[in-house]
Nucleic acid binder design. Structure first.
Ligand code: MN
Ligand code: MN
Ligand code: ZN
Ligand code: ZN
Lengths: 136, 136
DNA sequence: AATATAAATGAAAACCTTTCTCATTTACAC
DNA sequence: GTGTAAATGAGAAAGGTTTTCATTTATATT
């Protein structure tokens, strides 16, 4: 039940928050922009403002319910947080997004930050390319 | 001579292009936003419009003279292209940028793209953190 | 050196995603 | 049920970047 997730996250249980969570949980695409979520809500018959969608997604991010990807050039993309850190491959033709985890890379990043005297707070890695389907 | 670089890149030799190239070559900071370049031009006494700075930087990118970093949340940053690919560490406090190259990461990225059937066209890796100076 | 012409420029408007403002509505503790 | 703080919707605003369009400039040609 979404209400429980919201309460657990310290957020008041409101219709926009329930519906946005529903969308994220049931959507065919795991990675969605605020606009995507907004459109899905409209199709669902829910008249929730885009500003509210942004607000809710940002709150969800703060509460650890979703994470935000900052993709090159474009808009932000959100996905349900499942606790497992991973990075992304993006198809530049069809915008499909795939996920991967690579411990070697994770470890090298930590080593590089340490080497340079940086206290690492975050990192972002995107591999851009043409997915199998889109290779003519 | 900047004129030669421009001609070689197939660009007409104009004052804005020469001056922007001069700025990039002589600036104390290797990574500059369009706004940074614009301000440097003003200090130099050159009244070149911000729109032109953006246009010129984008053309330079197309010509392979500069590369563009798309940093999280903020504005784009440009740097002279020197042929050597590298990635970046960014201080979230002072915005200082450091560079690094890691062949292990590069190779893992290629392997992951291959594994997923992606024809890799590009990749971007940013490590965010607090630099040595900024650690209280 | 003067001319023609396509390209480049400056200023301002437009763009696009995201955030903010503020009046109104809602959730929830009492 | 009531009261109050929090959340919402609509639209304005923000901020970086791009576009538009009239004017200027670089360069090929005479
Ligand atoms: Mn993901
Ligand atoms: Mn660099
Ligand atoms: Zn594809
Ligand atoms: Zn710093």
């Amino acid at each position: 039940m979404e209400s429980q997730d919201l309460r657990k996250a310290g957020l008041k249980v409101t219709l926009p928050r329930i519906k946005v969570l529903e969308i994220l949980e049931s959507a065919q695409q795991r990675h969605m922009s605020a606009e995507d979520v907004y459109k899905a809500l409209l199709e669902m018959g829910e008249e929730i403002g885009l500003a509210t969608v942004y607000r809710v997604l940002t709150q969800f991010e703060g509460a650890g319910l979703v994470s935000r990807l900052s993709i090159e050039g474009g808009h932000a993309v959100f996905e349900l947080e499942d606790g497992s850190h991973h990075d992304h491959l993006l198809c530049v033709r069809c915008n499909q997004i795939e996920e991967f985890i690579d411990e070697v890379i994770e470890q090298r990043q930590r080593a590089i930050a340490a080497e340079k005297g940086f206290q690492m707070t975050d990192h972002s890695l995107y591999i851009y390319g043409i997915c199998r389907n889109c290779q003519s």
